[in-house]
Amino acid sequence: MAEKSILDKAKKIFENFLLRQGSRKTPERFSVIDELYALPQDEHIDVEGLFLLMRNKGYSISRATIYNTLDLLVECGLAVKHQFKDKVALYEQALTYKHHDHHVCNQCRKIREFSDERINLIKETMGKELSSAITSHSLVLYGDCQIPNCKNLKLV
C-alpha cells in the first residue's frame, strides 16, 4: 500500500497531466489511481481484477473507464503495463518504481519480482558490443512451480 504522501504526489502528477492533455478530472479516474496505489507495491493486477475489486468496494465504474484510465496512468508514468505469456495486460504502480525483472510460473501464474546486478552488466556489455546506448530492458523468466502446496496452483 502506498503511503499517503506518495498517493498525494501521484494524484498531483495525474491532475497536471490531465490538465496538459485537456482531459477531464473525473472522480472515477482518481478512484482508479486510489485503488491501484492501495495495492501492495509489488502486486500486478489486470483490468478485470481491478474492476471486481472496485465493484466490491461499492464503486460505480465501467471496465472501459478503468482501461482508459490505466492507459493514461501508463502514459504519464504512474503505472507500468506488462504483457506476460498469457497475453493479459497486468499493471503495477510506477511512481516509486525501481527497475526489476519478473519470474512467472507456467502452472500457478504467480509473478515474482527480482533484481540482479549481473543483468545490468550484461546490458552494458551488449550495449558496447552492439554500439548502442541501451536505456531499458525487460526480462521475464518462465518456469514450472515447485513451491510445496502452492496456493496459486491450478489443477488442470
Rank of each mutant, 00 (worst) to 15 (best):
H103P: 00
V104T: 03
C105K: 02
N106P: 03
N106C: 06
Q107H: 07
Q107K: 04
Q107L: 12
C108A: 03
C108M: 06
R109H: 07
R109A: 01
K110E: 14
K110D: 05
I111A: 03
I111F: 04
I111V: 15
F114M: 10
F114A: 11
F114T: 08
S115K: 11
S115I: 09
D116A: 12
D116C: 11
D116F: 10
D116W: 10
D116L: 13
E117G: 05
R118M: 10
R118T: 06
R118A: 05
I119H: 03
I119A: 04
I119Y: 05
N120G: 08
L121N: 12
I122A: 03
K123W: 03
K123A: 00
K123Q: 05
E124T: 13
E124F: 07
E124P: 07
T125C: 03
T125F: 08
M126P: 03
G127A: 01
G127T: 00
G127L: 00
G127E: 00
K128G: 14
E129Y: 07
L130G: 03
L130W: 12
L130D: 14
S131E: 15
S132N: 03
A133K: 12
A133R: 13
A133H: 13
A133F: 08
A133Y: 08
I134W: 05
I134E: 01
T135W: 04
T135C: 08
T135I: 10
T135R: 06
S136E: 15
S136L: 08
S136C: 11
H137L: 06
H137T: 01
H137P: 02
S138M: 12
S138N: 10
L139N: 00
L139D: 00
L139V: 04
L139G: 00
L139E: 01
